[in-house]
Simulated assay, not measured.
Amino acid sequence: MAAEGMLLTSESEEETARIAAALAQCVFEQTPEGLVIALHGDLGAGKTAFARGFVYAMGTPESTAVTSPTFTLLNPYEQGRMPLFHYDLYRLADAEELTLAGADEPLDGRSGAALVEWPQRAAELLPVDRLEITLAHQSPEQPNLRAVRFAALGPRSAAVLNALQTQWNSNRP
């Protein structure tokens, strides 16, 4: 299946969180069993800010700290509308390390939503039907400007992306 795509821009961490919150609503409505969301981007691109906006929009209390699980691999959030699993695979050498840690089970995309930072470190464990998001700095003159590129790689992720595009376009002035 060809990937369906969408491009948004963000000028702040708050705007990145709003984009993520809109996506969280669409994931909840379109795939109540969950979805794997692969978050790509260089260090400092906004992956954790995106994850924070997503986690809070799913109903996790804002008093709960949402940080990158760089040293623990996985932060679960189960207080919201569906179970959420936030991975940071930056320190992994390969997918086997994740499997040996026993943290690969929620990556089926049907146990809740999984947000995976640095997904290329365990790409073979990700389901084919997933949403790929790339956050990228746009300009040295505008350090807060980010491109947020979405690619849907299957029917479930395409339904979510189509819902996001409809929602985003209907909320524009």
Rank of each mutant, 00 (worst) to 15 (best):
93 A>T: 15
12 S>I: 06
65 A>H: 10
71 F>Q: 10
138 Q>D: 06
155 P>Y: 00
170 S>A: 09
145 L>W: 03
151 A>Q: 11
96 E>P: 02
56 Y>T: 11
1 M>G: 15
22 A>C: 13
33 E>G: 10
118 W>G: 01
164 L>S: 00
106 P>H: 09
131 L>K: 09
61 P>N: 13
163 A>W: 02
157 S>D: 09
65 A>G: 07
52 R>K: 04
130 R>G: 07
147 A>K: 08
4 E>H: 08
110 R>Y: 01
117 E>L: 11
172 R>G: 14
40 H>E: 14
143 P>S: 04
64 T>C: 11
80 G>I: 00
101 A>L: 12
78 E>L: 15
144 N>C: 08
154 G>A: 10
39 L>M: 03
135 L>A: 11
139 S>I: 09
134 T>H: 08
71 F>I: 09
47 K>S: 02
85 F>C: 07
78 E>V: 15
100 L>P: 05
143 P>T: 07
12 S>L: 05
116 V>R: 03
54 F>S: 08
27 V>M: 05
58 M>V: 03
9 T>L: 15
152 A>F: 00
109 G>L: 00
72 T>E: 08
7 L>Q: 14
11 E>F: 15
92 L>R: 02
63 S>Y: 11
59 G>Y: 05
114 A>T: 02
8 L>E: 15
157 S>Q: 13
26 C>L: 11
141 E>W: 06
118 W>R: 03
160 V>A: 10
92 L>N: 01
157 S>W: 06
10 S>D: 04
52 R>F: 03
162 N>M: 07
126 L>T: 00
87 Y>L: 10
22 A>P: 03
141 E>S: 04
82 M>I: 09
67 T>G: 14
29 E>P: 00
170 S>T: 13
113 A>N: 14
18 R>A: 11
81 R>V: 02
52 R>M: 04
90 Y>H: 14
27 V>G: 02
169 N>F: 14
25 Q>K: 13
116 V>Y: 06
26 C>E: 13
26 C>I: 08
140 P>D: 12
95 A>Y: 06
83 P>E: 00
67 T>V: 14
131 L>A: 06
103 A>R: 12
22 A>T: 13
4 E>W: 04
91 R>M: 08
120 Q>E: 14
40 H>K: 13
